[in-house]
Amino acid sequence: MLKATNLHAGYGGSDVLKGISLEVPEGSCVALVGANGAGKTTLARTLSGLLVPRKGQILFKGKEISGLPASRIARKGLCLCPEGRHVFAPLSVEENLLLGAFPRLPSIGPFRRKASADLEKIYDMFPILQQRRSQQAGSLSGGEQQMLAIGRVLMARPGLVILDEPSMGLAPLVLKEVFEAIVTLRKSGMTILLSEQFARNALSVTDSAYIMEQGTVVLEGPSADLAKNPAVAEAYLG
């Protein structure tokens, strides 16, 4: 479904990604594991169009997408839930969710009604969001904001969703809830690319994984195998 070949990308002078190739087959759940600064976020931004690659190819559903604006790529169904949540702080929780479905909703008119079935699903998955639906997103706790960011990206009914470090800064209980949501999504057949710094949770919920170091892929394979690999265990299982 998503296939990147020999990607080079970066900021300013030097490349952060130095020839990354990866593939996310339809219906699979793939982990991207790497330490601080390995380039996971840079890769996520490049795949979603926020950063234009300097070299290489990105195919989504068989079509080249590199160089397209991020909004076009999102409309094609490749959606990123960005690192650090990036909820729209001054807007309400429900408005944030509605914005996730923006391309599908009428610009003027009964957009709330049109989105109500999707809203319902998100509220079932994260009941706390329903309680806070008219609250400003900026006033939510970190964990609630992460749930909102995931809810927002799901409102787009994505073909493939990239989750960039959804566990960042979360308390264990919230972390559990977020990972349960990922397992539910995976069971529903959604294609997922999950970027994580710590491999234990990521490898346990994914089919296969890529291990990144300094802008390159150093290991790849089925998640279960990588979890048993002593080198991975030492570096990323902590």
Binding site: S48, G49, L50, P69, A70, S71, A74, R75, C79, L80, P82, H86, V87, F88, L99, G100, F102, P103, R152, V153, A156
Partner: peptide, 8 residues
């Protein structure tokens, strides 16, 4: 950026 990711 987040708005772009929503298709806006």
């Amino acid at each position: 950026d987040a708005a772009e990711l929503c298709g806006i």
